[in-house]
């Protein structure tokens, strides 16, 4: 993967560092740190292109990195300082914007019921209904490009949580993730199924290929997962995020599959969506009851974080959905100019 094109002073500053190997001496003094803090002080960090793309670039160093960028940057203290500046801004905005969930008892079925209530199917416009009935070929392609940022690495951010958990919630997470990773079959990995969908639609299936085309809000939805996954203190939130993600998947994926069939795509291209109808009806039970519910019983003080993680997932999903539907109803592209 190539480094993305910077969208502001934060990204430009990061790119300036990454093109060289890290040095033993600190590159970043208080003046640089102060400039980063100023640049991260924006009206809305959730939808700010420079904040979100720069944070995504820093997180990408923990996944598969970039061509021409020294792997040693991953744990460079200067970059971790930049990451903290951006994460503080992102977290503060989420705390302010995400609707606070109703408090719930730290019991398995109560937590699962609360999560199912938060994620209950709602009537009204949705990306899934639009793709099912109305999207044209260009809009369907745009939808795949938005989804590709996460889905070509599907499941990876939640896997960070495995060593942070123990007992029943850990077993539950591994049970879900094993299925996400194809149950031992590389060709059945969900990321591989989506790569096939991308190819079937004539798109590039390379992870991160389209990031320069994506708006901040799509990038923020993935950054949320990396934020929750990479910090042990957010283990409750990553569990709640996965539960909400799985609980809002089966029914929409049926509609996505219908939409791509309506547009004439073959079974290989729609397999990803069809697989998720069945798989996520299993995963939502395990993630809601055995992962989130059991974690709440193990660590009752995490209930608030579990529900916050779910609420944040739904909030970002809603923002992305609104971005797509607003662009399409205005007759414009939901992507940035190439």
């Amino acid at each position: 993967m190539k480094l993305p094109a910077p969208r502001g002073p934060l990204g430009a500053s990061l790119t300036d560092l990454l093109v060289h190997p890290p040095r033993d001496t600190d590159d970043v003094d208080d003046a640089v740190l102060s400039r980063w803090r100023d640049a991260a002080t924006v009206a809305d960090p959730v939808t700010d292109d420079d904040v979100q793309l720069t944070l995504w670039t820093l997180y990408a160093l923990h996944y598969r990195g970039f061509e021409g960028v020294d792997d040693a940057w991953e744990w460079d203290p200067d970059l971790l300082r930049l990451r903290r500046v951006l994460e503080n801004a992102f977290e503060a905005a989420l705390r302010h914007q995400v609707p606070a969930p109703t408090a719930t008892a730290a019991e398995r079925e109560a937590v699962a019921a609360a999560l199912f209530a938060m994620t209950a199917p709602a009537p009204g416009p949705s990306v899934a209904r639009y793709v099912s009935r109305s999207a044209d070929a260009t809009q369907a392609e745009e939808f795949l490009i938005h989804r590709s940022l996460y889905t070509l690495m599907e499941a990876d951010p939640h896997t960070w949580a495995v060593p942070r958990l123990s007992g029943a919630p850990k077993a539950a997470l591994v049970e879900v993730q094993a299925d996400e990773y194809g149950g031992g079959r590389p060709d059945r990995m969900h990321s591989a199924l989506f790569a096939r969908t991308m190819r079937g639609a004539g798109l590039v299936d390379e992870y991160g290929y389209y990031v320069d085309r994506l708006p901040a809000v799509t990038i923020a939805a993935l950054n949320l997962m990396s934020l929750f996954g990479l910090h042990r203190r957010w283990r409750g939130a990553i569990a709640g995020h996965l539960a909400a993600f799985e609980m809002t998947s089966s029914l929409p994926n049926r509609l996505y599959g219908d939409g791509f069939r309506r547009l004439g795509h073959d079974a290989g291209t729609t397999d990803y969506f069809d697989e998720h109808v069945e798989a996520d009806a299993v995963h939502e039970q395990i993630a809601g009851r055995d992962l989130a519910g059991r974690l709440a019983e193990q660590e009752p003080e995490l209930v608030g974080d579990i529900l916050f993680g779910a609420a944040a997932c739904l909030y970002l999903d809603e923002l992305v959905g609104r971005h797509l539907l607003d662009a399409w109803s205005a007759g414009t592209s939901s992507l940035r100019a190439a």
Partner: peptide, 26 residues
Amino acid sequence: RRRRTVALCRCGTSAIAPFCDGSHKA
């Protein structure tokens, strides 16, 4: 059976019966 753990429909409205497709929620 395409996965180790499967969910079987109990509400009678799944489009992929005998497996669950989440329709019980709708």
